[in-house]
Nucleic acid binder design. Structure first.
Length: 334
DNA sequence: AACACCGCCAACCGCAAATGA
DNA sequence: TTCATTTGCGGTTGGCGGTGT
């Protein structure tokens, strides 16, 4: 039978919004708010639009303080780290980037950021294959993975997850070294420390920009939320599991554990080298601050042929530790 | 100049979750 | 508890503009 349409499609206008429609919608919401019912809204205003369409237009375009385009390197870093951690949960990622919408970030990832990574990886793979053939071809099967495979959304994220998880080593410098963490939005960097020194000792900075209160296991996001939308705080708060003893994670450990177990059979082999390349390519491509240049220098001087899990500790660079810590942060759940 | 191709992005669609009666 | 309705989300599409041939 199919589901009932959300609106009368015959009498509803589709396609791009005209400036007049924008003005009508914006004026009305500015004056009266949404009234808690998007479906009824267009009728009230006299717009021949579906309620969903109005909502989307408002959230993605008309809402105050929306930023379009011009993603900074810091934002790139946050998007990448969160994508690795939680995958394509754009609304959650958007909650970490004030002024950005999930749609915007999704578009940006699909059209630009992913290509940055994959483009560099392509180059690196080509270089590697030349090197390998020159070295008499002990072929590294991992390099046979094509960027196309990586770009396959689900697989791509799985690969990143599993590759990260397979880097085995204890927590170390990344977590203890704030310099290595992604730079945050200035608002995100302000904490409750100033206001409550007692709490300060119980809180831990999240590299994702979220502060975790050990006592309450509760994220403090008041500073993030500029009041124009509840968008910025709700999702993160929901995502934390208060029952967990604090472990470094992005606040999404439960889901990730599910994801991880679910896909363990499929992706039980990781390739730290490839991931390391991806990470460094990101730095190379974007100049991102948290894939440090030292990492790249060291990578160049380190043999890439022995990145087995057993040797990771011996060959650990700051970057490897960083990546590994990201993996731990992503998966640790008690 | 004309056409084809490609990238970008706003908007749509369908589904699942949340909400409320 | 159940069911209908609304909201929120992520994947996908389609139009437009830029670029290449």
């Amino acid at each position: 039978m199919g589901r009932a349409p959300c609106c009368d499609k015959a009498n509803v206008k589709k396609g791009p919004w005209s400036p007049e429609e924008d003005v009508k919608l914006k004026d009305y919401i500015d004056k009266y708010g949404t009234g808690g019912n998007w479906i009824a809204l267009p009728q009230k205003i006299g717009l021949k639009r579906c309620g969903k369409s109005c909502r989307l237009r408002w959230l993605n375009y008309l809402r105050p303080n929306i930023k379009h385009g011009g993603f900074s390197e810091e934002e790139d870093s946050i998007i990448l780290s969160l994508y690795i951690s939680i995958g394509s949960r754009w609304s959650i990622i958007a909650a970490q980037l004030p002024g950005r919408t999930d749609n915007d970030i999704k578009n940006y990832w699909n059209t630009k950021l992913k290509k940055k990574l994959l483009g560099r990886q392509k180059q690196m793979n080509r270089q590697d294959s030349i090197t390998n053939s020159n070295e008499n071809n002990i072929s590294n099967n991992n390099n046979n993975k094509s960027p196309q495979n990586l770009s396959n959304s689900a697989l791509e994220r799985l690969q990143l997850h599993m590759q990260l998880q397979n880097l085995q080593s204890p927590f170390s410098s990344f977590y203890n070294n704030p310099i290595l963490w992604p730079k945050l939005h200035p608002l995100l960097q302000s904490t409750t420390h100033d206001q409550n020194p007692k709490l300060a000792s119980q809180e831990t900075f999240h590299p994702s920009g979220v502060n975790v209160n050990h006592q309450n296991n509760h994220i403090k996001l008041a500073e993030i939320n500029n009041g124009s939308s509840p968008l910025y705080s709700e999702n993160i708060e929901q995502s934390l599991n208060p029952a967990h003893e604090f472990q470094p994670n992005f606040g999404f450990s439960q889901d990730l554990r599910l994801d991880n177990h679910h896909n363990m059979d499929l992706m039980n082999r990781g390739d730290s080298k490839e991931l390391f390349q991806v990470g460094n390519e990101f730095e190379l491509t974007t100049g991102s601050s948290w894939w440090s240049e030292e990492v790249e220098l060291e990578r160049k001087t380190t043999s890439t042929s022995s990145w087995g899990s057993a040797s990771v500790l011996d060959q650990t660079t700051e970057g490897m530790v960083m990546l590994q810590d990201y993996a731990q942060m992503s998966y640790h759940s008690v």
